[in-house]
Design a protein around this nucleic acid. Structure first.
Lengths: 224, 224
DNA sequence: CGTCACATTGAACCTCTTCAAGCGCCGTGG
DNA sequence: CCACGGCGCTTGAAGAGGTTCAATGTGACG
């Protein structure tokens, strides 16, 4: 019984990830890994909340995280998904601009900023953080561009993003719900669902289950 | 005759900025300032282009810069505006993901990456770059959130962003055209124009000229 | 087997886009 | 000097794409 976003929330609290478990595709041993404490979060578990003082940075070992803002008036705005290997909360500032939650049971390395700042004269560490922040900036810029397009292109762009970042080959496993995807793409869940169905009808993809996507013609998707 | 985006392009090539000239609101003397060469760009002048090797980073002294992507198929996607004090092209990577052009005559400090990398063991410099990149990341995340909203909120968000970043008080001077704004907000120029007109009809703002905005009730704008 | 959460599908509506026309400013050239 | 043309902005009317509202479907768990 794999841990999907579709299981019962209360029950999932104690589950372990069966699929893609372990330590996927990350570099041999990076500087950050020596500093942080491994912590586990259940599905929908809160990692930090908007407005709280920003005291840590985070690196994902396994699972998936969403970061989002929740305006007093308005819809939830999902800013990013983070997958194993990614760092988040790198943007600095005294308080968090966004909240972060696990979309599935996740293992996350939590690193105190104080510990980083204690090494602010360590040029290697600073440079490492710079690289990570640059990568995060590039991702955010890409997402920005995606949001300037139409619904079908957004959904396709999302699929391709997940495919690349998850290093999936052919089949993609979704660690998030339609609502998460919709809030990330600035669409409604209905539009996401309809668009996926249309792509399946056009034989570009198939959806064996709602949270698995098989790409039939990746080239065709790229051309949209 | 101030340098606005509305002058004749050929003629503006030789103009100097009258409004807001000099060195606005930047820290006493930052590390980067010692390394770069000051360069001037005319309105619509190309700073770098998508696909070129990324060899420099840039800091704006005066003027305004747009960064954008231009998909083979599709519209121009404006990712950011940069104003005096901002740095851009911090995202790293071997080649530029985007192009950059001046929206008005601008003075820009151009810093070779080689010069920065020569100081990669200078923790202070690395930390400075980290701070700048973090600030850029925060701006991009904010813009992301803006793109998840409706047209009126996007336009209001844009006005407030320009107001804050330009340190304007009451009156805002726009250094970009409606087309630039539209491509930045993922709207059409018609929608931008209509929305501004409606805000003026509702007495939230007034538009003495198309490139000057006077805020009448900033609080009212915030509540949207 | 009933319930709950999530996903899918349909139909009416609304916002934003598209297409088209007109205005105002500025610089140029007759 | 004034008429012309280019450029950017504004405004109107028709149309498309996405949202909203509502109903149905489906798998997981108790």
């Amino acid at each position: 019984m794999p841990s999907t976003p579709h299981g019962n929330a209360a029950k999932s609290r104690s589950r372990q990830r069966a699929r893609k478990a372990g330590s996927p595709q990350q570099a041999p041993m990076r500087t950050l890994d020596l500093l942080g404490a491994l912590t586990t979060f259940a599905r929908n578990g809160v990692i930090f909340s908007e407005g709280q003082p920003a005291e840590c940075v985070y690196k994902i070992e396994s699972g998936c995280v969403r970061t989002y803002a929740m305006p007093q008036t308005g819809e939830r705005q999902l800013v990013a998904f983070h997958v194993p290997g990614d760092c988040f909360a790198l943007e600095g500032g005294d308080v968090h601009m966004m909240s972060a939650e696990a979309t599935t049971d996740s293992t996350i390395r939590v690193i105190k900023r104080k510990a980083l700042m204690a090494r602010k004269n360590d040029a290697g560490m600073m440079r490492h953080l710079l690289d990570l922040t640059g990568a995060e900036l590039r991702r955010t810029q890409r997402h920005n561009m995606l949001l300037l397009k139409g619904a079908q292109e957004r959904v396709i762009g999302f699929i391709l993003e997940i495919k690349e970042r998850g290093h999936s080959d052919g089949e993609i496993a979704l660690d998030m719900t339609r609502r998460d995807i919709a809030d990330y793409l600035g669409l409604t869940i209905e539009t996401v669902s309809r668009t996926l169905s249309r792509l399946e009808a056009e034989s570009a993809i198939s959806l064996p289950t709602p949270w698995r996507i098989v790409l039939h013609d990746p080239a065709a998707l790229n051309l949209q």
